[in-house]
Design a protein around this nucleic acid. Structure first.
Length: 443
DNA sequence: TCTGGGGTCCTAGGACCC
DNA sequence: TCTGGGGTCCTAGGACCC
């Protein structure tokens, strides 16, 4: 048995915790460069603002309907997420943090009323963090996602589903007829794993609701569509095909990409951006203790603008796998030079690290004690151990004093030439008491 | 004027090998 | 002139997720 705990309108809810005056206003949180809406309050959804709507297209609603737009503060959301996840973990023995606002909880072995237990956790999250959430419970992850959708939609739109399912919906404790009734009320496109393309194709086949999809023959779905969709059908039928991943696997790719706030034409500006992206990506790489074999760099114009288009990427094989910012940034900027063409308005660039492997697979021992000053008294730039020490020291300084406190000289210093906006992330406070240490009573 | 930033998995097709 | 069969690896592209 699975539960899905999912924060309502998560980014907006995080903002509202600290700005209660926004509680009944239509609010959106905007993406990088304030480009488009990535979170919407219920009131904003009621104005028919779609996910990903460009700000310039909805801006008029600020005037006419009091729409409030906020720039995203991802450091804040990450911090709030940690707190929510820690409380949600009390629902059952295993937890998979699926995204910043969602976690699956494995419920095997939990006794007593699951609905009652879920309601307690839900109100605890609300009371302790100020964040509202919905909880769905079912025998498979796909059905738990569906139950969660019902729980949240029943609350937001009273005429959509019976109101007793608002906030917490347990599909495992109701009759088959009732379950089929709820699935029949749910559009097929709402099912986890059915995107726009599949939804359109399924509708052509007369499959309009989650109930219709659950009644499909898995083998037909496999041959007409894919094994992935077949798995979705089986899960809708109650057969678990996907388990809880309570230990997050290492990333297989790590990327840092950004759209620019204004068109960029010069190589020097691009180089500065790409160098910074490479540095960020390398940090992430070191955080998971991996090494990259390849560095991919891309630049592109805006597909939304009616002008000369250009989009190129280049993949550079590193001489040996590493996580060293300098090496990776150099590879990325060299790649950039090879694909750059003047005369275009560039809108976006990025660096991706590919073909990752565990750092210790073919490298020196990396666990170097930074506080041990006796080991290497003088810094030797060509000494691999010192290079590792340098990176570790950089990460430590940036962690403590905020991102960008210490940069490689090649990364540029921003200022007047800065063409992309990196939101300064808030420093993470160091808790003396972690939320996880607070005992969570088992019902 | 202004349109996010990450990821994953699967499949088809080509290159290459024996 | 006839032109097999099986396997692996890699890449690009398509689909999905938040």
């Amino acid at each position: 048995m699975f539960a899905l705990v999912d924060g309502n309108n998560f980014f907006v809810s995080c903002e509202r915790v600290f700005r209660p005056s926004l509680n009944h206003a239509p609010v959106v949180v905007l993406s990088n460069n304030d480009g488009c809406a990535i979170a919407r309050s219920n009131e904003a959804k009621a104005l028919d603002i779609k996910m990903g709507a460009p700000w310039f297209k909805i801006q008029h609603l600020a005037e006419s309907h009091g729409l409030v737009a906020l720039s995203a503060n991802f450091a804040l959301y990450g911090d709030m997420s940690d707190r929510m996840m820690a409380i949600a973990a009390g629902l059952g023995p295993t937890q998979e943090i699926y995204s910043i606002d969602e976690s699956f909880i494995g419920l095997d072995g939990v006794r007593g009323s699951l609905v009652r237990r879920a309601r307690i956790i839900r109100s605890r999250i609300l009371q302790w963090t100020g964040l509202p959430c919905g909880i769905g419970i079912a025998p498979t992850k796909t059905l738990a996602k569906l139950a969660n959708h019902i729980a949240k939609t029943a609350e937001r739109k009273p005429d959509s589903y019976p109101k007793e399912y608002a906030q917490v919906c347990d599909l495992s404790s109701i009759s088959t007829e009732e379950r089929d009734y709820l699935l029949g009320l749910t559009e097929v496109g709402e099912v986890w794993g059915v995107g726009r393309r599949y939804a359109a194709q399924l509708k052509e086949h007369g499959v309009h609701t989650a109930l219709d999809l659950s009644r499909m023959e898995p083998s037909v779905v496999r041959s007409r569509w894919s094994v992935v969709l077949e798995r979705t059908v089986r899960e809708l039928q109650g057969t678990p095909c996907v388990q809880i991943e309570d230990i997050a696997p290492d990333k297989k790719e790590i990327a840092c990409t950004r759209s620019f706030g204004r068109p960029v034409t010069e190589l020097t500006d691009l180089r500065e951006a790409v160098s910074e992206f490479a540095s960020r990506a390398s940090e992430k790489l070191r955080r998971q203790r991996s090494h990259a074999n390849k560095v991919l760099c891309f630049i592109r114009t805006s597909p939304f603008r009616k002008e000369k288009q250009y989009s190129r990427s280049v993949c550079i094989q590193l001489p040996e796998p590493c996580s060293d910012t300098h090496t990776i940034a150099q590879a990325a900027t060299q790649g950039l030079k090879s694909i750059y063409k003047s005369g275009y308005n560039y809108a976006k660039a990025g660096v991706m690290l590919l073909d990752l492997q565990p750092a210790d697979r073919n490298q020196l021992k990396l666990d170097i004690d930074l506080t041990d000053r006796s080991a290497t008294p003088a810094f030797a730039p060509n000494n691999p151990i010192d290079q590792v020490r340098l990176m570790q020291a950089m990460d430590a300084v940036n962690q403590r004093y905020g991102r960008g406190a210490l940069l490689l000289a090649s990364a540029g210093l921003g200022g007047a030439h800065r063409v992309w906006s990196m939101k300064q992330e808030r420093r993470t406070p160091q808790y003396t008491t972690r939320w996880q240490d607070i005992p969570i009573a088992r019902t």
